[in-house]
């Protein structure tokens, strides 16, 4: 600007720089989605809920690490941490998934997206990847804090750190399972409606309705019913897969020898969610 405040009309300038392809567009949408998940680049109001949930989860991890360092009592291990935080994960997905997809639907911005070099599959891919990353960060960062707490207070030197890292990595893997399953279901439910409140309610309801069924099946006097009960609810499904993969025992859930079924269901459920999402957006993309 010149000192006199004259506005110089420099005319229209043509753009001759680089035009990136679809991978870059995918990356841009992914990055945008991940930022939106935590309300970055949005108003303060959009930051409240995701950061509230993230704050609670972080606090739990810090307390856990602190207790372990001071009194050497393990409140949760890395797996139990995810299980304990399950409802917070659901709330987080219920807040973020509508932010990622319902918002676009509500504001009618999709025709602008799909008139650019972006396909329905790219859109879903970027959104689901952003949501998976967000949920994973929600669990993975506190797990890292727990690890750091344990690693710095270990009395066995380097080998103690390595042992702890050996426990952290599968814990992170478990968080990935959580993130993938919950992101797929959450995004599918959110893509049905453009109203954010309905979408959030729908997501919570999906998880809420299935949880008691597990309890009911556990009362039934059939061994098989007990073993299969976890299949009904996404939360117990992930736990079942974890128990199966680790060959572990969980007091709340006994999968018996039905472990592989849990694995198969998890994969199928995610695949079905993604295919339904794709079908939905194929339709939306052609307007």
């Amino acid at each position: 600007m010149s000192e006199t405040g004259v506005i110089h009309d420099i005319g229209y300038q043509r753009y001759s720089g680089a035009r990136l392809g679809r991978p870059a567009v995918f990356g841009a949408l992914y990055q945008h989605g991940l930022r939106a998940a935590f309300g970055l680049g949005r108003s303060a109001k959009a930051k409240i809920f995701p950061w509230l949930v993230a704050g609670i989860v972080l606090l739990v991890a810090v307390i856990n690490a602190g207790v372990k360092a001071q009194a050497n009592i393990t409140l949760f291990d890395y797996y139990m941490f995810d299980d304990t935080m399950s409802w917070l994960v659901i709330f987080f997905v219920a807040i973020v998934a509508p932010e990622l997809v319902s918002r676009d639907m509500r504001s009618g911005v999709l025709p602008l997206y799909f008139s650019r070099p972006l396909r329905a599959a790219d859109y879903i891919g970027a959104k689901i990847a952003a949501l998976i990353t967000a949920v994973w960060l929600l669990l993975g960062v506190p797990q890292l804090i727990m690890f750091l707490g344990a690693a710095f207070t270990t009395k066995k030197g380097m080998s103690g750190v390595w042992d702890e890292a050996g426990r952290l990595l599968p814990g992170w893997g478990y968080s990935v399972l959580w993130a993938v399953l919950f992101a797929s279901i959450g995004l599918l439910v959110a893509s049905i409606t453009g109203k954010r409140a309905f979408a959030a309610g729908g997501i919570v309801a999906t998880f809420l309705v299935t949880a008691p069924v597990v309890g009911v099946l556990n009362i039934v006097r059939s061994e098989t019913a007990h073993h299969l009960s976890g299949l009904v609810s996404p939360m117990t499904l992930v736990r079942g897969v974890q128990i199966w993969l680790r060959d572990g025992v969980d007091l709340g859930l006994d999968v018996g020898r039905m472990g592989p079924i849990y694995g198969i269901e998890l994969v199928c459920l995610v695949a079905v969610c993604l295919l339904l999402l794709l079908a939905r957006y194929r339709k939306v993309a052609s307007l």
Binding site: V25, H32, R116
Partner: peptide, 17 residues
């Protein structure tokens, strides 16, 4: 500004451009 920038990136423009 933010919205148009976002759509510019979805058109394949690099971030600063």
């Amino acid at each position: 500004a933010e919205f148009v920038t976002h759509l510019g990136r979805l058109s394949g423009l690099p971030k600063t451009a």
